[in-house]
Nucleic acid binder design. Structure first.
Lengths: 218, 218, 218, 218
DNA sequence: AATGAATGAGAGTTCATTCAT
DNA sequence: AATGAATGAACTCTCATTCAT
């Protein structure tokens, strides 16, 4: 993850009712928002989607419920912002890595993508777990769609630029590869012993990706 | 999927509060339960987890809310039974296919597993979509864990028996492969245009699996 | 208690909607009614007024809910009949004892009343406990009023006939005495260790009654 | 009743699920709680235990149902607090009177106890009637047990200190006397014409107690 | 006569959100 | 700007009762 990666990278526009109320420009505001985000993740991890109530979030964040509503017009907007930030960070990190590995050999491209994606999820593993579990609670189709599209774009550019490689059905390959990387990783995060098993999974996923892309190229 | 596949295969025992209240023995009862199941799926597809209320389910099923509660002690128990049945069917189908392809060449084993899993999901695609979306809403960890374990077992036996193949780290391979097959498929079912894209995904996933398993064997 | 004491002694008429549906004339019917009564008391003792549902009563009685409703038009009617029978038995027993002790010395009259009342409650202690606890659940004012009136009448006749005794304010004495005997006994039945403490209470209540009546006579 | 009598005297601790949610510190909150208490009593008096629903209480109190649940986690907890306060006031008043009459002649002790108890019930006669009727609806065994124990203690100390009096079986006497005073009074409050008949009952109960205690002492 | 699946009004309770302070 | 008491629509679930079989 990287300081240059900014929230403004996000291309999905919040659908009106989910827009945040004020940009937290001042330091105190930023701290408040951060506390609310952190509290949301904690509540999710401790009690699951069932326990995620605005009052509980506010209490855990140490602010009043009224203050929470000064920053977000509702629970959905808050979650939208939180998930959005999380997904944007991950997408941006993957995009960055992909740009950095352009024109390299296919195996390096493959590894770069896989590692960047998993690293992004590992960067804040608690948030990853919490938000995976909560994501169904809301209708965040546009957020996930945006993310998938950004990953598709990044993967596509990367594969198209890879040394000595051409793909007959590039779209199909990209689409399937991204599905498998994101879906497989999600599966790991939703199971127990995430941390213990991640190294093995990362290694195998990398091996699988290399083997697949190699087999898929013309 | 197969007529012989029976619900009784299921190994996860409902944890008390989630147990069904009466098994529908009479014809009318069976029809009622089936209507409730079908209604649940419809409500999920139309309104998502947010719209899934017991009253709506009962209304859509054409029964009274009281009737619903005669069969299930609560919403969770109903979903538990529904998801349980769905996952059990899928697990059983995969197990059956794996047993049928024992000792065959590795590529056939790979294809058998991938195809059986996707076929199981395609068998009732609406239910698959609906339940993927809803499964996070409840705590059905034990159901998904049981399913994953059954798939692990089936995949492990299959790979261990495959012709001319030995794997150094069989557990790691099985674990990663299953994660990627189930997670990738889930990703497809949660996106739009599921039906249109499935054929491509199936083909690529099969290719990926063959390539991976081939690369993973000693 | 006594075989001659018949239910028809009861003077309070069920207020229409609480009337029983059929007189259990046949032997089988009688057994059914008895089973329902017994089940009602058991359910009350085991789960309190909260657990007293018609379905539970029917189940415990070993009859279907439909059968229960063939005998009683509703839950209130059932309880009304049960409590009515219980109170009628007690009232009749007290009346009998009072008639048998007419014109005896005051101390004997006092003992007769106290002992008859407590004996009646002890005769079916489980029913007594259960029905004390449940009596508030329904509006059985007329039943308790009738009982109180019968007890008043019996006590009044008894005291008026007692040897060497005249009371200035007979009504006030009777009213207070009956309140104390019935209320005190109820208190004992609602506390724990009813059985252990009853002998002492009976003795003290008898002593109290004798002392009181002696002090109250002119 | 007495201003010094505080709720904190209460020794029975609410069993978790019955604990109040917040103590009303601000003036507005206090008024709200008082309105809820008053409404509860009114509803009980008008419709009996059957009509006692949380929504009706809230409506009558002029607050929303949500507000009620901010202060009490449920109907039972509300009643628990209300009955608890009522019983605590009565117990404390009796204890106070007993302490004030220590070492006095037995007749004065007797009168003090009887009058203190009845005065406590008369202090808020509507509440007394209402709560007598409702108390069986809930499981408030611990509250009534605590009250009985406090009354036992107070009566015991009083009798043990009375001039020129010793009791062979003090416990049995106290236990029976308290049962009769509380049970008899309850009976009066549950019958009609409570107010009209109370003076007579009070006089007769006082007479009965004096006669009894006199007869019981060695 | 007996059964028990079905009914649905109505109860308890939650929680996102508002707004007077 | 911040607070938190108050709100009430919406939800889950119960249980007395009916009626086709």
């Amino acid at each position: 993850m990287n300081a240059q990666v900014r929230y403004s990278h996000m291309t999905a526009l919040p659908p009106g009712r989910l827009k945040s109320r004020k940009q937290p420009s001042q330091a105190r505001s930023q701290a408040t928002v951060e506390a609310i985000f952190e509290a949301t993740i904690q509540v999710l991890l401790q009690g699951g989607a069932r326990a995620l109530t605005t009052n509980r979030i506010a209490e855990k964040a140490g602010v009043s419920i009224g203050t929470l509503y000064q920053y977000y017009p509702g629970k959905e907007a808050l979650l939208y912002a939180l998930v959005g930030r999380h997904l944007d960070k991950a997408s941006a990190a993957v995009e960055l890595a992909c740009r950095a590995h352009r024109s390299m050999p296919l195996a390096d491209c493959s590894d770069a993508f896989v590692n960047a994606y998993i690293d992004a999820k590992i960067g804040d593993p608690e948030a990853s777990r919490a938000l995976y579990h909560a994501s169904t609670a809301l209708d965040m189709k546009d957020l996930t769609d945006t993310t998938i599209k950004r990953l598709h774009g990044a993967a596509r550019d990367l594969l198209a630029s890879a040394q000595d490689s051409r793909f007959e059905n590039l779209d199909g390959v990209v689409f399937s590869w991204v599905a498998v990387v994101t879906g497989g990783t999600r599966q790991i995060f939703e199971e127990d012993e995430t941390i213990e098993r991640l190294p093995i999974f990362r290694e195998q996923l990398a091996r699988m990706s290399r083997a697949y892309l190699n087999a898929a190229k013309v």
